[in-house]
Simulated assay, not measured.
Amino acid sequence: MKKAMKILSLATALFTMTTGVALATPSTQIWIPSTDIQPYKQFHLNIDNYFRASGVPKATTATRDANVMDIGPTVGILPFEKVQMEVGFDYLVAANDPNDNHPFSGNFKIGTPEDSLFKYSPALAVGMYNVGPTQSAANAPLVTSGQNIAYVLAARTLPEFGTVPSLGRISAGYYRGSKRALVSESPTSKPQNEGVLLSWDRTMSEISDKLWVAVDYMGGHNVDSATNIGFSWAFAKNVSVIFAYDIYKEKSLAGNNTFTTQLDINFP
Rank of each mutant, 00 (worst) to 15 (best):
H44K: 13
M1N: 11
N193L: 11
Q135T: 13
V215Q: 00
Y40I: 12
Q29E: 13
Q42V: 06
N193V: 09
R64F: 08
A125K: 07
D115T: 11
R52D: 00
N222D: 13
A94C: 06
Y175D: 01
I170W: 06
S205G: 12
G76Q: 05
D209N: 15
N222S: 12
L198I: 03
S232P: 10
F104C: 02
G173H: 02
P103H: 00
R64V: 14
R156G: 03
Y217I: 00
G76V: 03
L124V: 06
A11W: 07
Y217G: 00
N101T: 10
A172T: 07
N257K: 06
N139I: 14
S225Q: 08
T134L: 08
R156P: 02
D36R: 11
N238Q: 13
M5P: 11
V164N: 01
P39Y: 02
G55I: 09
P33V: 04
N101E: 11
F243T: 13
G132F: 01
N46S: 11
Y50T: 01
K2C: 10
S27Y: 12
R202S: 01
D264W: 15
S232I: 07
V213Y: 02
T157Y: 07
V83C: 06
L142P: 08
V87D: 03
A11G: 09
K210G: 06
A13Y: 03
S116R: 15
N256C: 13
S208K: 03
A62P: 11
N266W: 15
Y245L: 06
A22R: 11
L158F: 00
L117H: 05
I7R: 13
F267R: 05
L117A: 02
Q262F: 04
D100E: 14
G162S: 05
F161I: 11
L45M: 15
T227F: 07
G177C: 08
G230D: 01
W31Y: 08
A123H: 08
A13Q: 09
T157Q: 10
P98K: 07
T12A: 15
K82H: 11
S225P: 05
P79A: 06
G177A: 07
G220I: 00
T12D: 11
T16N: 15
I170K: 03
G146E: 06
F15E: 14
N67S: 09
